[in-house]
Amino acid sequence: MQQKLFSNVVTVDAESKQVQQVLANPQYLLEWVPEITMVKQNDKKFTINRAETALNQHEVVRVKRNANEIRYVSTEGRLEYEIAFLITGEGKRTIIQEDVYVPEKAHLHLPLKLLAPIAKHAFNTNLNNLASLIEKISI
C-alpha cells in the first residue's frame, strides 16, 4: 500500500501534448532537476544519479503512461516512491498536478512528517523548473 506524501500544482503556457512529450522522456530530467547528473536508459528503465548528497543518490525509474497521466516509479534507492503527473489541458495552457506517493511502511531514519515539507518544497522548485523548460521548448 502507498500513501500520498504531498501534491504540487503548476500551470504551463503550452499544450498538454508538449507537457506529455517532455515528461515521457526522462532525459529531460537533466534540464529541470539540477542535482541530477546522469540519466541512462536501459530497456524501459532509466538509471539516475545525483551529484549532491540526496535521499536517493542512485535510483532506477520506470515511466508509465496513460491518457492524461505519466508516472515515474522509482526503485533501488533508499526510498522507493512514485510520482503521478496528472496533465489537464485547457487550450494552450496545461495544469500539471504532481502527486508523490511513498510506501506506507517506508523505512527511513527520520519520520515522513519531517521529510514531507522539505521534499514538497524541493519537488515544487523542480516542477516550476519543468514548467519553464516546457514553455521555453514550446515557443
Rank of each mutant, 00 (worst) to 15 (best):
R78G: 05
N42P: 01
E15P: 04
K105I: 00
N25G: 10
T94H: 04
L133F: 05
T53V: 11
E135D: 07
S132W: 02
V9E: 14
L23C: 12
E15M: 10
K105Q: 07
N49S: 12
H58G: 02
R50N: 11
L110E: 09
H58T: 06
E52F: 00
A14Y: 13
T88L: 01
N68R: 00
K45D: 13
A116T: 13
S74D: 10
F6N: 00
Y101L: 05
A122F: 09
K136R: 15
M1G: 12
L114G: 04
T37V: 14
H121Y: 15
G91I: 03
G91Q: 04
L79R: 05
S7Y: 10
E80N: 11
T125P: 00
N8Y: 09
K136D: 15
T125G: 00
R50S: 14
K4S: 02
I96G: 01
A54F: 12
R93Q: 13
V19N: 09
L115C: 02
Q57N: 13
R78N: 15
Y81A: 07
P26F: 05
N49K: 10
I139L: 15
V22L: 09
S132Q: 13
A131V: 10
T88H: 01
Y101D: 05
V12I: 15
L86G: 00
V100Q: 09
L115D: 06
T11P: 01
L127D: 07
N129W: 06
E135R: 13
R50M: 12
E90A: 01
A84T: 00
R65G: 03
P117E: 02
A67H: 01
A84Y: 02
G89A: 06
L79A: 05
N42L: 10
K105S: 06
V100D: 09
P34Y: 08
R78V: 04
M1S: 10
I95C: 01
N126P: 08
L127K: 09
R50A: 14
S138M: 10
A116P: 11
L30V: 12
F46E: 06
D99S: 02
A116I: 07
L86V: 03
V39M: 05
Q27E: 15
L112N: 11
Y101E: 04
A116M: 14
E15K: 07
L29H: 02
